[in-house]
Design a binder for these strands. Structure first.
Lengths: 115, 115
DNA sequence: CGATCACGCAACCATTTGGTTGCACGTTCT
DNA sequence: AGAACGTGCAACCAAATGGTTGCGTGATCG
């Protein structure tokens, strides 16, 4: 039996994908991943949009558990919460597993009819 | 050098995640994955929302390349395009790879300072 | 102390999104 | 032929989204 009701799991995974489903946010995740922790202003540096826009996106990522932050002097530092990406990958793997099972069933059916 | 400009790649991946980032749509993908091809009406069967809502979601999934459809008599049959999920996984793996590189760089730095 | 910097908050705006209902059209069943 | 079915299309609606600007506040620099 599943550890969690399927509907709730889908909701959770969808929330994660939703957070990743914006180019600006995905760029932020990528940047935090490659360049390491950075301040809000730092992350706004090269961006096409305003600091507040970036700030809002970071808040969305934070709500999704993809990123965390802490105050340091007058800056707020953001860093990636890397384990969270595993959850997204797990969701995809789960769907893939279903797909493979379906193929197996189909294969079994074909072989049964092949006698 | 990257096969594609980074910005374009991010956009592509974000579009994919965006399509997966809705509970109803993610359920549809999961259902198509586990139960195999099905008609619009069939997919609307258990759903909480109307047939047209489902139809719109399927169209979004189709635009994202996650699903394809064909007319069969008076029905439209939808089936998963499984390879597309690989792209989503690849995007996550790519970010993870960046992260690992960053950790390696950090490690190298620590060891260098440790002499 | 005064200037500047980084940030948070709020108001506001246009567009997108997710949903509905109603209707028209082609297909299938009897 | 006529009824029922599966879809597609369009209009419409409320809420969410992504963005802006302006302003207040605490921290840091000179």
């Amino acid at each position: 039996m599943p550890r969690q009701a399927s509907a709730a799991r889908v909701k959770q995974a969808a929330a994660l994908f939703h957070a990743l489903g914006d180019p600006t946010r995905l760029s932020l995740v990528q940047r935090l991943s490659s360049k390491g922790p950075e301040s809000t202003a730092g992350l706004s540096e090269g961006a096409a949009v305003s600091r507040q826009a970036i700030s809002k996106h970071l808040r969305v990522l934070s709500d999704a558990g993809l990123v965390l932050s802490f105050r340091e002097g007058r800056e707020r530092i953001w860093k990636l919460k890397p384990n969270r990406l595993q959850d997204a990958r797990a969701a995809i793997n789960h769907i893939d597993a279903l797909w493979d099972e379906a193929l197996d069933r189909l294969q079994a059916h074909v072989e049964a009819a092949d006698s």
